[in-house]
Simulated assay, not measured.
Amino acid sequence: MKFRNFKMVDYVVYGRGCFDQVDEIIAPHRKGDAPMVFLLDHFFENNNELKARIPVRANDILVIADVDHEPKTSYVDEVSQMLKDKFGTVSGVIGIGGGSTMDLAKAVSIMMTNPGKAQDYQGWDLVKNKSVYKVGIPTLSGTGAEVSRTTVLTGPTRKLGMNSDFTPFDQIVLDPALTKDAPKNQRFYTGMDCFIHCVESLKGTFINEFSRSYGEKAQDLCEEIFLHKDNWDEESDEQLMMASYAGGMSIAYSQVGVAHAISYGLGYLLGTKHGIGNCIVFNHLQDYYPEGVATFHKMLKKNDIYIPEGITKGLTDEQFDIMINVSLGMAPLWENALGKDWQTIMTREKLRAIYEKL
């Protein structure tokens, strides 16, 4: 049996206030006049306090990342081409924001050293050249984007990540203080993304002790935060940040499952954001994850969160087929969830019936 040699993030700094060490951390990676590129989530566009703390030096550039929607391959191409035209090359790319901003940073860093278009690298192990230096700084916890070997992108024909050993960040900066202003609903949706990572990993056919050790801890933290606490506090920010890290590590050596596979179809066709998309789907997956869905429903009630219903109402047969095709293209996810014979279990008709419930 051949075991996968798993590429992890090279360096991790954790602690309240560690964002102020970024200048010192990235200094050795500066190359001559080539700038550092800071991609800042547009949520912070008017946050002058945070912007003043970003160590922009010499000809560095601060780019406000447009992540109203999850990153499209065309946007990755636009940003990377702008940087190539302006600077030729860059010393590194630093993503500061939620999961979409970190995915954008990973993708742009890859496209600075690889030819063609971003859509050419949607899939597994298609990236050939090491990216420029890249740093992930999450301001929202739950997606696991800070540790994953994928960057989720919507391309012209599918929603699929760049899954490769060249995708993980070289450095991540985990500062719980950066997440304190996250909106309640958004915090819940990304927290549930983490919880669903854990349920799908722990209940999947790919499960192993490496993944289990991280997944169980992350799931426990999610339940502590969203079920057993009455008020959000600094400790909650710290717990969710570590749940996100551990949840991302859990799926790194296993996989996610049904909810993610189906939500990719929603994201591609309707532009549904990943966190809330997973919640919309998971809400109807009692047949696949009964215990997890029951706990999820308790979390919804405890936190007074509303999950949209009826978002697929009125779609045409052609539109349902598009979502089904995107979803069924996620073969590793389905195999983890249902086993090697998953194609005989998850038929197009059964998948259509699930989409119709949403």
Results as ranks from 00 to 15, higher is better:
residue 311 I to K: 06
residue 320 F to A: 05
residue 319 Q to P: 09
residue 298 K to F: 01
residue 300 L to N: 10
residue 311 I to Q: 05
residue 307 I to K: 06
residue 292 G to W: 02
residue 313 K to P: 00
residue 282 F to S: 05
residue 314 G to H: 12
residue 298 K to S: 06
residue 299 M to Q: 11
residue 313 K to H: 14
residue 300 L to V: 08
residue 305 I to D: 09
residue 298 K to R: 14
residue 284 H to N: 14
residue 302 K to L: 03
residue 305 I to R: 11
residue 310 G to S: 05
residue 295 T to R: 09
residue 318 E to N: 11
residue 294 A to W: 01
residue 313 K to A: 14
residue 295 T to W: 00
residue 302 K to A: 13
residue 307 I to L: 05
residue 304 D to K: 15
residue 320 F to T: 00
residue 298 K to C: 01
residue 289 Y to I: 02
residue 309 E to S: 15
residue 310 G to I: 05
residue 310 G to T: 04
residue 294 A to I: 01
residue 317 D to R: 05
residue 283 N to V: 02
residue 302 K to M: 07
residue 308 P to F: 12
residue 315 L to K: 07
residue 303 N to C: 10
residue 308 P to K: 12
residue 300 L to K: 13
residue 294 A to G: 01
residue 320 F to E: 03
residue 291 E to R: 10
residue 297 H to V: 02
residue 313 K to I: 06
residue 316 T to Q: 04
residue 292 G to L: 01
residue 302 K to D: 06
residue 303 N to G: 06
residue 298 K to A: 05
residue 312 T to W: 01
residue 320 F to L: 05
residue 286 Q to E: 15
residue 316 T to N: 08
residue 292 G to A: 02
residue 299 M to K: 10
residue 306 Y to C: 04
residue 285 L to N: 11
residue 297 H to I: 02
residue 292 G to Y: 01
residue 289 Y to C: 02
residue 315 L to D: 03
residue 309 E to I: 10
residue 315 L to I: 03
residue 285 L to I: 11
residue 310 G to V: 04
residue 312 T to M: 01
residue 290 P to W: 04
residue 317 D to P: 00
residue 288 Y to M: 00
residue 311 I to D: 03
residue 311 I to R: 07
residue 290 P to H: 04
residue 285 L to V: 09
residue 310 G to H: 08
residue 305 I to L: 07
residue 287 D to H: 13
residue 302 K to H: 15
residue 291 E to K: 14
residue 284 H to S: 08
residue 283 N to G: 03
residue 288 Y to N: 04
residue 292 G to F: 01
residue 316 T to H: 05
residue 286 Q to R: 13
residue 316 T to W: 02
residue 288 Y to C: 04
residue 307 I to G: 10
residue 299 M to L: 10
residue 318 E to S: 14
residue 284 H to T: 13
residue 289 Y to D: 03
residue 299 M to N: 12
residue 296 F to T: 09
residue 293 V to E: 13
residue 291 E to H: 08
residue 318 E to W: 02
residue 308 P to M: 11
residue 297 H to Y: 04
residue 320 F to Q: 00
